[in-house]
């Protein structure tokens, strides 16, 4: 696959963005026959580069499945998904790994930090395989955790661990940042600090950011909110004005 930077690598420069992701008729079915579960039932979507997008919807509505397919860790059953004009749904496993390695940052609900590495080392872990990473210290500074750089995950609170996970995800300067329930395991107050970090990073680094959440209030900080229900997009709402993460609560 090589470089995925198709025509349109321009950073968000004010004019109408060409979509970084585009899907047509995307479906995903688990199992078969009577036991088949239709997680996605034909998703048509365009996400412009550089936006902060929040995906809302009840459990099982298909938002995680969509994120997984766009993140290159799951495969669609039908339809197409494009990243900057490159068809993700046609890529071989090796190409998907390279795609994740080069372009994608993940923030997990349960942080998924390597318990045997310190905060700084967890960040360096990803920096080591990136072509042009930022310094681990700088990444931790962005999430205001530079003072805890030498701590192991077991020595950090949940919110701190999630901020380390964010620092790890952004250290490679990803093109896109996927966050699956990043505040799901955190209390509201801590969750806000995490969202704040994500919002700041989106604005400062320009990485397209997709956040899955149950908390509807989170939608206020997004450029665009996609509502999911029953494997389909029910509604896409564009916010004319984005709220600051510190102004929301749930």
């Amino acid at each position: 696959m090589g470089e995925l930077n198709g025509p349109g690598t321009a950073r968000n420069g004010g004019q109408e963005q060409r979509p970084i992701f585009q899907t047509t008729g995307l479906t995903k079915t688990y199992g078969s026959g009577a036991a088949a579960v239709h997680a996605l039932r034909g998703v048509e979507l365009e996400i412009p580069e550089g936006e902060l997008v929040v995906l809302l919807g009840p459990s099982g509505s298909g938002k995680s499945t969509l994120l997984n397919i766009l993140g290159g860790i799951d495969r669609a059953s039908g339809g197409e998904a494009y990243f900057k004009g490159n068809e993700l749904t046609a890529m071989k496993e090796r190409a998907l790994t390279a795609y994740r390695r080069r372009h994608v940052g993940f923030v997990f609900q349960f942080y998924n930090l390597m318990p045997s590495l310190t905060a700084a080392e967890n960040v360096e872990l990803v920096a080591e395989i990136a072509p042009d990473p930022m310094q681990a210290f700088d990444a931790l500074k962005l999430v205001e955790l530079e003072a805890r750089a030498d701590h192991f995950p077991a020595e950090l609170s949940g919110g701190e661990q999630q901020r380390v996970a964010i620092a790890r995800a952004i250290a490679k300067k990803p093109t896109v940042l996927f966050c699956d329930e990043p505040t799901g395991a955190l209390d509201s107050e801590t969750g806000v600090t995490v969202l704040k970090a994500l919002q700041t990073l989106n604005e400062e680094l320009g990485a397209t950011t997709l956040i899955i959440t149950h908390a509807a209030a989170t939608g206020a900080i997004a450029d665009r909110v996609i509502h999911f229900a029953d494997g389909r997009i029910r509604e896409v709402v564009k916010n004319a004005v984005k709220a600051s993460a510190s102004d929301i609560s749930w």
């Binding site: 360096e124 192991f152 020595e155």
Partner: peptide
């Protein structure tokens, strides 16, 4: 979860040149 804590094995300057994956192994 396994409790890794500072000050226990495999840290410090000598260890600095070791990549993170290898550090995971040693730790």
């Amino acid at each position: 979860p396994p409790k890794f804590a500072r000050g226990r094995g495999f840290s410090g300057r000598i260890f600095n040149s070791v990549d993170q994956l290898s550090r995971m192994i040693f730790r």
